[in-house]
């Protein structure tokens, strides 16, 4: 009888001990992790859109991590899109005060190195600048079709969300 209680008891104790250790480790590292993520985001923002005062808007929209507004009235959308890898593209797409795309920054991309390089070229990304409406037509890239599609989808999502929620975003 003792034996059959000892087994689950040991397992429970070990599980509890591991949970405790992880909670402790989490408490130690949570701040650092939050800090690192904020710093990375700030760096991407500054790199792509210049130095400015950026504030995140509290509203949540489907498919978009967060919307950030800067002092010039630009709105920057933090989105994840799927290229070859599901949710492998992390993008920052900026719309100027009139709602036209003014910049696309690829924060990280999980597709293979060759495709990642191709979709980050100016020649490809520049076709999205100035767009104000979601469209289906775009120039794809040979050898990186899915990666290009991912970016196209992200731009469309951003423009559609902007169209529907313009008021809340610009004055909220």
């Amino acid at each position: 009888m003792r034996e059959s209680i000892k087994a689950p008891l040991v397992l429970t104790v070990i599980s509890a001990a591991v949970c405790g250790m992880l909670a402790f480790a989490n408490a130690l590292t949570a701040d650092k992790i939050a800090q690192t993520e904020q710093a990375a985001l700030q760096e991407s923002l500054t790199q792509a859109f210049g130095e400015a005062e950026y504030t995140a808007l509290p509203q949540q929209y489907e498919g978009i991590h967060q919307v950030i507004r800067d002092t010039d009235g630009r709105l920057i959308f933090d989105v994840t899109s799927s290229g070859y890898e599901k949710d492998g593209q992390h993008l920052l797409i900026g719309l100027d005060a009139e709602g036209a795309v003014c910049g696309i920054c690829v924060v990280s991309i999980a597709d293979s190195p060759t495709q990642a390089a191709k979709v980050q070229e100016d020649a490809f990304l520049s076709q999205f600048l100035g767009r104000q409406k979601a469209t289906d037509a775009y120039d794809a890239i040979a050898g990186a079709t899915k990666s290009a599609q991912g970016i196209q989808n992200a731009v469309n999502l951003v423009l559609e969300t902007y169209q529907t929620n313009k008021e809340a975003m610009t004055h909220g």
């Binding site: 034996e3 000892k6 087994a7 689950p8 040991v10 397992l11 070990i14 599980s15 591991v18 250790m21 992880l22 480790a25 989490n26 130690l28 590292t29 650092k32 992790i33 690192t36």
Partner: peptide, 29 residues
């Protein structure tokens, strides 16, 4: 200390614990 009957789940829990800690380290640093 680990009894034969629950050997594998115990090992797995310990390994998962270390993996999560390495995840913390990498995420932060």
């Amino acid at each position: 200390v680990i009894p034969q009957a629950v050997k594998l789940p115990c090992y797995i829990v310990i390994i998962a614990g270390f993996v999560t800690m390495v995840e913390f380290l990498l995420h932060g640093f």
